[in-house]
Every structure is written in structure tokens, then in C-alpha cells.
Simulated assay, not measured.
Amino acid sequence: MNACETEVAGERVLLLPQKALYWPRERMLMVADIHFGKAASFRALGVPVPRGTTNENLSVLDGLLARLDIARIVFLGDFLHAKTAQAQATVQAMLRWRERHAELELLLVRGNHDWHAGDPSELLHVTLLDEPYEQGPYALCHHPHLESKKFVIAGHVHPVYHLRTARESLRLPCFVIGARRAILPSFGAFTGGHALIPHATDQVYVVADELIFPIEIR
């Protein structure tokens, strides 16, 4: 599969075009800001937005589980978007997916949306954690500016990068890897993004459809 292999805090990891990070030694997939039920939350407010984003997110997870040796998924915050995200159709889709992957360990490092949305259904069998969740050299968090002696891997920001030519500009999701922390792009469909200005020493990997590639910071 297309991926960028790199070393982060002494560990080999894969940055995936599906906007997730895979840690082979621990058979761990890290996913930030999936925001299940965001579209349903908007529709509950009367905003006409596309349907099917929950199933789209679950389908992408299915594809990764089929291609990689994954024993656990760590969600780096914002698993649910809001209380209205716990609509019956959303929860039922997630429960059907969970039944197909009953052996999979799921962990959620709570983010700001999770505190407002409430915990996911107990039937999903998700282990709930407060940040930082420390594993090996990493502190797995939602908020990237949390201080830790370990290397921070986080989400929250939904980073995107502007690729510009003389006439055109593209706004693309990206991974930003610095000296002490890495920020993952938002995994979820219909979640938007925030343009970051990376430091000169940061490594930036841009996602364009099924491709991921490093870019040179100027």
C-alpha cells in the first residue's frame, strides 16, 4: 500500500494516505479527530449536509484493517462530534462495524468534543483514557501542546497545507512532525482543516487522495 515510512522518536512508523499513523512494532493504528456523527449533528440543526459520513469513515477503517496487521486502534480524541451524534442510525452503524471486529482493541484518548458529546456506547467496548496515554517513547494525546517528557503524538488542529503554484493553490491535509511532537490530520470525513505555518525544522507530509508525500519547507 502507498505509505511514507519514517522514524519518529526512534520507532519506525508508517504515515498513511488514509490520514492515520501505523506503528508496526505495536500493531497499533492511531487515528485523530474522526468526529463520528458530525453530519448528523448538523442535520439535527436543520443544516442540509451530506449523509453517509459515518459509513465512509468505517469503510476506510475496514480497508486499513484488511491491509495491515492491526491489533488495536487508538483514537486521539474527538471520537464523537456532539451529543446529537449519538443518533440511532449513527450508533447502529458503529455497532454493526464493531461486531465484525470484535477481537480488535479500541482505545479513546478523550478530546474536547468527547467531554461534551459524552462517552460512546458501552456496547462498542472502547477503553476510555485521559491524556496523555503513554506507550513506549510516545505520549498519545488529543491536544498537541500538552507538555510531556515523551514525544507527543496528537490531533485536534486538523492541519492542512497550502500547495501553491504561480496560478493555483491546493489546500491539502498533512502530517506535521517536529522535534518533540507530531500532529496528525483529521481522519474524519466532513471535518474541515486549519492551515498551519510549519517551522523550518518540521517535516510535512501532504495527503492528496491516495497519495502521501513529503514536501520541502521554504
Rank of each mutant, 00 (worst) to 15 (best):
G77P: 09
P48I: 07
P48N: 08
F75W: 05
T84G: 07
L104Q: 04
I70H: 08
N55W: 04
P50Q: 10
T84H: 13
M94T: 00
P48W: 04
L61D: 02
A66Q: 15
M94Y: 00
K83S: 11
L68R: 12
Q92K: 13
V49W: 05
L95R: 11
Q88D: 12
T90H: 07
A102S: 15
P50E: 05
G52P: 02
E99F: 04
V47H: 11
F79N: 10
V49Y: 06
G77W: 07
N55A: 11
V91M: 10
R96T: 12
A85L: 01
R72I: 03
F75H: 08
L104E: 03
F79C: 09
R100M: 10
L95C: 09
Q86K: 13
S59F: 09
L64Y: 06
Q92I: 10
I73Q: 06
L104G: 05
T90M: 03
G63I: 04
A85M: 01
V91N: 01
D62K: 14
N55R: 15
V47N: 07
S41W: 00
S41D: 02
R51T: 13
R96C: 09
A44G: 08
P48Y: 03
L58V: 01
T84S: 15
D78H: 10
H101L: 02
Q86E: 05
A71G: 15
R72S: 14
I73Y: 06
L61S: 07
V60R: 14
R96W: 05
R98F: 00
R43Q: 12
F42I: 07
M94D: 00
D69K: 15
L106T: 04
A102M: 08
N57P: 03
A85K: 00
R96G: 05
N55Q: 14
D62N: 13
E99Q: 14
E99K: 15
R43A: 11
A93V: 04
L106D: 01
L68P: 08
D78T: 12
L58P: 01
T53S: 00
A85E: 00
L45S: 15
R98K: 04
G52D: 03
I70D: 05
E56T: 13
V91Y: 00
L80Q: 10
R67T: 13
D69V: 12
A102T: 10
H81A: 11
T84P: 05
V47D: 05
A87Y: 01
N55L: 11
F79V: 11
E56V: 02
F42K: 04
Q86P: 02
A66P: 02
V91I: 15
G46A: 09
L45C: 13
T90E: 15
V60S: 03
V74G: 05
A71Y: 07
A89Q: 12
G63Q: 14
L95T: 10
E99G: 06
E99S: 12
L104P: 02
T53Y: 00
G52F: 01
G77Y: 07
A102P: 03
F79H: 10
M94P: 00
V91T: 14
A89L: 08
W97A: 03
D78P: 09
L64W: 06
R100Y: 04
G63M: 09
A93G: 06
L45V: 03
Q86H: 09
S41H: 05
I70E: 06
S41N: 02
A102I: 10
G63L: 09
D69G: 08
A85C: 05
L45R: 15
F79E: 10
N55K: 14
